[in-house]
């Protein structure tokens, strides 16, 4: 049982983190808090992906003993153990996802500035009152 928990606990921690952000997105009435929740949610997804890349006893995905540029000619002599390096693909995907996250954050904040200009408040309840 304990072994089972140890083998999965990373996913659970990130899911709890995700749900903290998700709750803030749904339940908070302040628009900036919603955006903070959105960011927590997205960051948790990024951590989730990156944790799938991990292999025990492996190192960063940068080749050791590399001959650098032009190494392709000698590559046949070198044996590369796949289990020696962690999986690079989730890292690549998350680099893209981080950029997407930042972009969403920027646009969301720009929109919030416009909302503030219109209503003079960032509290959703007060905005709804102002509309009525």
């Amino acid at each position: 049982m304990l072994e089972f928990i140890i083998s999965k606990y990373n996913f659970w921690i990130y899911i709890i983190l995700m749900m903290i952000g998700f709750y803030a997105m749904i339940a908070k009435t302040n628009l900036v808090k919603k955006i903070i929740g959105m960011n927590i949610f997205q960051t948790a997804i990024i951590l989730f992906f990156v944790s799938t890349a991990y292999k025990s006893d492996a190192t960063l995905p940068i080749l050791l003993n590399s001959q650098g540029h032009g190494a392709g000619h000698h590559a046949a002599e070198q044996v590369i153990e796949v289990s020696q390096y962690i999986n690079p693909l989730p890292h690549v995907l998350m680099l893209t996802a981080i950029v997407v996250m930042v972009a969403t954050l920027g646009v969301a904040l720009a929109i919030v500035i416009r909302v503030y200009r219109d209503y003079g408040t960032l509290n959703e309840d007060e905005i709804i009152k102002a509309i009525k």
Binding site: M38, A108, I111, R114, V115, R117
Partner: peptide, 25 residues
């Protein structure tokens, strides 16, 4: 009123995109 409508869309649209990304993950 458009910025507020757009903000609601940002929140729900991001949830949608994040769910899609989680599914892909």
């Amino acid at each position: 009123g458009a910025p507020l409508a757009s903000f609601r869309y940002v929140v729900l649209g991001t949830v949608g995109a994040c769910f899609y990304l989680l599914g892909v993950g």
